[in-house]
Write a protein that binds this DNA or RNA. Structure first.
Length: 941
RNA sequence: GCCUCAGUGGCGGAAUUGGUAGACGCACAGGACUUAAAAUCCUGCGGGUGUAAAAGCCCGUACCGGUUCGACUCCGGUUUGAGGCACCA
């Protein structure tokens, strides 16, 4: 058997017979399976491609044999930087390089026997395709969804191009890794933020896997809150801020504006320390995104001298700072700072010594009815000489606590604590260090038969020296406690009381309190404990006094759609001195890329296209005066934002896709791609499609029904495959050594489709052995055209299992079921022709070449043209079943009983089993449970 | 820090969704065939205890606890790893 010849033979057969071409006007039910089309890079196909292509291929093959009209297309996403880079270096047209790469990819994919419909193949770089990408851009423009604006953009100094936020993740250029800087530039921008809510809502109409859905939702980053107006003192202006926590308005002690805030320019003359402010602005601008968002760096900022704001809820005058921890492009570019309840504000306030007002108290203990209210303190005394803490041990009456006491009238926290320390321990010379926010504690005093609610403050003191008076103890305190000095670790394990524990933790590591609690210091909100309610109440209040309203903000921003590159779709716009921006008339599309073999990037930040005068200069479509073309091109994501629509109708030169085709193919049923595209590509594509839908150009709002993501194939060492690590496996080599079928089988068998898995050539060899075994079984085949009696159940079970597993993407267990089946066949002297052909048929979607070949040798019609095997519901179970018998949940034996036996019958047989009998001796049976055909459990005492 | 997912033999991974944990494959060990090798076939393979060999018994699905006749599966807590987001107010 020559594997190479066989594989080639069937690959040619399928092409010649158009075995996998889909029909547009079919009576059959449709099924649309899509895998992300690749960027045809110079390094060729990756074994990861093989996994996802094979997986979806096996699904497509099953669906076809089940009678569906399956659309399973392939194409090329071929615009992009690497091809351009290559072209600049080698002075050839990127079209050439792209064509070569496509040929390599195509040959590689075809050598795997993937059943793509090649009659629908296209590349995003085909003028017949990008004509329609341009056409759709004009639709965005017509609807006001594309606009040009001068924006501070992410700029890669090495690639000399603007990048979208998505391309500049983490502050580095996605392509070259260079640090991204800022640059002001006129850019075409798509109004994607307008679709933020629709993009969240639309997920309801899809069956994406959860981690993809959450990735999308996180990316959009919807957050609800309020816009609050702070009057700018002595002006007519208001400083607007966005906050998700309007309930903490009484805790605002300062405001922060981003260094780019417009008021800084507007009120320049009022700012007395303008020089300092300007210096800070420069400092902030000079930093890259990555430096600026480095979480470990200390907070920096400058207080504005001469500009203050008014808190609308209490009319207090508040200082204003500028700091780079407030971002210009989120919310309103300014915040109200509540240091008590926000980590960043807390850090800032600590650094610059700004007042902190708590407005939410942590609740400890359980609130009860009829509580008495008191205010009290918990004092922690630290001895710096021994680094130990003073604890009061109440022994069985309460264990280890700290010094506690109730505040007397007109007494402040510190004097109360000092008094209590002296009374209980005698120490007189202590130094105040710090205190916690108030804590709302609830407890029940059994000796007084009374419930208490206390507002407690924890205070930290240091022992200055050992000077001491005689403690002054109450009757109930005498002899009941001892004073002990303990280390931090001892305290942490000894002190169990929730209040005292909380105090100790907060004193030793102070931080903002960001959890739920009880509102304090907040006027009409005082006493409330539900954050949502407090927020609601505050928003209503703000609306009443006209100082704010409910507001929603998104992390998602508009899509910067301009790239200063040559190898992309030209943006079909013309700039005329008189008419402004004029769209290229539809009948003049496509705006073709010039056919020149030499491009140099410009230093002005413009696309290399700007240097090609004969292309740039063109008459204005409106007034016919000479004008200039837009030289920016579209981003790489443009072509992939609608390609699945084109597969429905790839040769249409009148429309981008016909209504007929749309109505027939509907949504993509299964869309597979990598997790790395779960946010960006998927979001762009959904946005694009929703826009087309809202303008009546497509019939479904959501383009993809199901989105699945394959796991990666890692190197043998468990690391990501890369040339530098030298762990790259070339699929061509594997096809040469073991054949395409073995490679396909192995990649499906390797494990959970969605999980990453390490490559193992031994595993591949095992799959090769399995296929060889299937081939050898041919020697046992008889002429009989019925199932072997003793295999009938197994065969029916396997048909069901393999069908279900492939269609639900459990490929590994489908392969395993086929292995079990062939092992059973192998145990037998003979198998019938029908047994064998069924095995071949079930294996065909996974290993199509060898199964077709053997099947043909048996004199049968090609499997891909034959109907998929069906199973008989009544033949999925044997007449007898093996049931486990357990006693008190432990399995003590197994019994064979007739299928669906009556419970009494089963119990009788179970109790007669030797080992079971032994375990039942001298025991009383309490309960008997029989689960049909599965297990018997007898509970004994 | 927040969100999502996961943790099962030496390894990749099964487990009918609460019912005999470790299917299937790999690796390994022993054996058969062979002059030899490859290929193929047979046997064993979570740990412990036990036996001449079995049988049997105990432990075991990251850790602690709970629900249940019964938990890899459900609930609460802890921990480790992967991915996403991140000075987003």
């Amino acid at each position: 058997m020559n594997i190479k010849e066989i594989e080639k033979k069937w690959q040619d057969y399928w092409l010649k017979n158009k075995s996998f071409e889909a029909f547009n006007n079919s009576e059959k039910e449709k099924y649309y399976i899509l895998v992300e089309f690749p960027y045809p890079s110079g390094s060729g196909l990756h074994v990861g491609h093989v996994k996802s292509y094979t997986a979806l291929d096996s699904m497509a093959r099953v669906k076809r044999m089940l009678g569906y009209n399956v659309l399973f297309p392939m194409g090329w996403d071929a615009f992009g930087a690497p091809a351009e880079q290559y072209a600049i270096q080698n002075k050839i047209h990127p079209k050439k390089a792209v064509e070569e790469n496509i040929q390599t990819f195509k040959k590689q994919i075809q050598s795997l026997g993937i059943s793509f419909d090649w009659s629908r193949e296209f590349s995003t770089t085909d003028p017949e395709y990008y004509k329609w990408t341009q056409w759709q851009f004009l639709k965005f423009y017509e609807q006001g969804m594309a606009y040009k604006a001068e924006k501070e953009i992410n700029w890669c100094p090495r690639c000399k191009t603007g990048l979208s936020n998505e391309d500049a993740e983490g502050g580095v250029c996605e392509r070259c890794g260079e640090k991204v800087t800022k640059k002001l530039k006129e850019q075409w921008i798509l109004r994607m933020s307008a679709y933020a809510d629709e993009l969240i809502d639309g997920l309801k109409d899809t069956e994406f896997i959860d981690r993809v859905k959450t990735a999308q939702i996180n990316w959009i980053g919807r957050s609800e809150g309020a816009e609050v107006d702070f009057k700018l003192e002595n002006t007519e202006d208001v400083l607007k801020v966005f906050t998700t926590r309007p309930d903490t308005l009484y805790g605002v002690t300062f405001m922060v504006m981003s260094p780019e805030h417009e008021f800084l320019k507007k009120y320049e003359d009022r700012i007395k320390n303008l020089e300092e402010v300007k210096k800070y602005q420069e400092y902030a601008a000079s930093k890259t995104e990555i430096e600026r968002t480095d979480l470990t760096k200390e907070k920096t900022g400058v207080k504005l001298d001469g500009l203050r704001a008014i808190n609308p809820v209490n009319n207090e005058s508040i200082e204003i700072w500028i700091s780079d921890y407030v971002l210009a492009n989120y919310g309103t570019g300014a915040i109200m700072a509540v240091p008590a309840h926000d980590d960043r504000d807390y850090e800032f306030a600590k650094k610059f010594n700004i007042n902190i007002i708590p407005v939410i108290a942590k609740i400890t203990g359980t609130p009860q009815d009829n509580e008495k209210y008191k205010e009290s303190i918990v004092a922690v005394l630290h001895n710096p000489k021994t680094d130990k803490y003073l604890s009061i041990n109440w022994h069985e009456k309460g264990g280890n606590l700290f010094i506690g006491g109730t505040k007397q009238e007109n007494e402040d926290n510190i004097s109360c604590a000092v008094r209590e320390i002296e009374e209980e321990t005698g120490y007189t010379n202590v130094k105040y260090i710090s205190e916690t926010f108030p804590i709302n504690h609830h407890y029940y005093a059994y000796n007084k038969n009374q419930a208490y609610e206390i507002m407690a403050t924890g205070l930290l003191f240091e022992l200055v020296d050992e000077s001491k008076n005689e403690p002054n103890l109450d009757e109930d305190e005498k002899d009941n406690f001892t004073v002990e000095w303990k280390t931090k670790e001892e305290i942490e394990s000894l002190v169990k009381d929730e209040l005292h524990k909380t105090v100790f933790e907060n004193l030793l590591s102070p931080s903002a309190f960001v959890e739920d609690g009880k509102m304090i210091n907040s006027n009409h909100l005082n006493g409330m404990t539900d954050i949502k309610e407090s927020i609601q109440k505050m928003i209503e209040h703000l609306e009443t006094i006209g100082a704010g309203k409910k507001m929603v903000t998104y992390r998602l921003q508009d899509w910067i759609f301009s790239r200063q590159r040559f190898w992309g779709e030209p943006i079909p716009m013309i700039y005329c001195e008189d008419c402004g921006w004029v769209p290229v008339p539809e009948e003049e599309l496509p705006v073709l890329l010039p056919d020149i073999a030499s491009y140099e990037p410009t230093d002005t930040g413009e696309s290399p296209l700007a240097n090609i005068e004969e292309w740039v200069n063109t008459p204005c479509p409106k007034c016919k005066k000479m004008a200039r073309r837009e030289t920016d091109t579209m981003p790489n994501w443009a072509g992939s934002s609608w390609y699945w629509l084109r597969y429905m109708d790839p040769n249409n030169d009148k429309e981008f896709v016909s209504k007929d085709a749309l109505n027939y193919w509907k949504m993509v049923d299964y869309y597979n791609g990598g997790m790395e595209h779960a946010t960006r590509h998927l979001l762009y594509a959904r946005f694009w499609n929703q826009f087309l839908y809202n303008n009546g150009l497509v019939t479904y709002k959501e383009p993809f029904k199901k989105r699945v993501a394959h796991g990666m194939i890692l190197g043998t060492n468990g690391e990501k495959m890369s040339k530098s690590k030298g762990n790259v496996i070339n699929p061509d080599d594997m096809v040469n050594l073991y054949g395409a079928d073995a490679l396909r089988t192995y990649e499906l068998f390797i494990g959970d489709y969605e999980k990453d898995a390490a490559w193992s050539e031994n595993g591949l060899k095992g799959c090769k052995r399995f296929l060889d075994k299937v081939f050898r079984l041919k020697g046992k085949v008889t002429d009989e055209n019925e199932y072997s009696k003793d295999l009938e159940i197994l065969i029916n079970q396997t048909i069901k299992k393999v069908t279900d597993d492939i269609l639900t993407m459990n490929f590994n267990t489908a392969v395993s079921a086929l292995m079990i089946m062939s092992n059973k066949f192998d145990e037998k002297e003979n198998i019938t022709k029908k047994d064998y052909v069924t095995l071949l048929h079930l294996l065909n979607p996974i290993a199509p070449h060898i199964t077709e070949e053997i099947n043909e040798n048996l004199g049968n019609k090609a499997l891909c043209e034959t109907v998929w095997p069906t199973y008989d519901e009544s033949k999925l179970q044997n007449d007898t079943v093996t049931m486990a018998v357990s006693i008190n949940g432990k399995v003590r034996g197994t019994i064979n009983v007739a299928n669906d036996s009556a419970d009494e019958e089963v119990l009788k047989i179970a109790k007669a089993e030797d080992n079971v009998k032994k375990h039942l001796e001298n025991k009383e049976i309490i309960k008997e449970i029989v689960v049909k055909n599965r297990i018997v459990n007898i509970v004994v005492k």
